[in-house]
Amino acid sequence: MVALWGAVPLAAQSPLSGVGRTATPEEIRGLGLAIGPDGSGLPEGSGTVAAGRELFATHCSRCHGPKGEGEVGPALLGGQGTLATAKPFKTVGSFWPYATTLWDYINRAMPFDKPGLLKPPEVYAAVAFILNLNGIIGDGAVMDASSLPKVKMPNRDGFVADTRPDVGPGAPSRPQP
């Protein structure tokens, strides 16, 4: 009985029980905002195309060009219909499958030299302007946590599963993880 008493808790414990502590809500808030394609994680706030146009001129056009045509940074529009050609032009408008990705990426990584600078309403505005540049949303559209996940990107259905091994005589015997 004594032996059993000692053995049960040992067996129930993982080798690291007691290591670390419970993460606090503040600590979790301090991490990057991760946004799911269903809009999970999107914060409050909203932004218009007009506000985005102004913000773009201040923070974005230096690298992406005044009209988003690309300079040091990549072009943000164009290329629709080119993906199956010899010279595919991959942009937000032609390639990106989810508008939420644009919010997530601008929020965490842009502007390049000051990532994290933009507040959520500014990120919504920048996203609205870039989507409008691509003709995906209208001039009067407002982007927020409700409207953004509903935006259907032109290349939404352009992604498929990885089917490798796709080349070589050894392919058929390859285990599929």
């Binding site: 394609p37 937000v92 390639f95 990106w96 499958p97 989810y98 990705t101 990426y105 990584a109 992604f159």
Partner: peptide
Amino acid sequence: PYMARDETS
């Protein structure tokens, strides 16, 4: 999956 920029674009 969150469809991050570095796994879509």
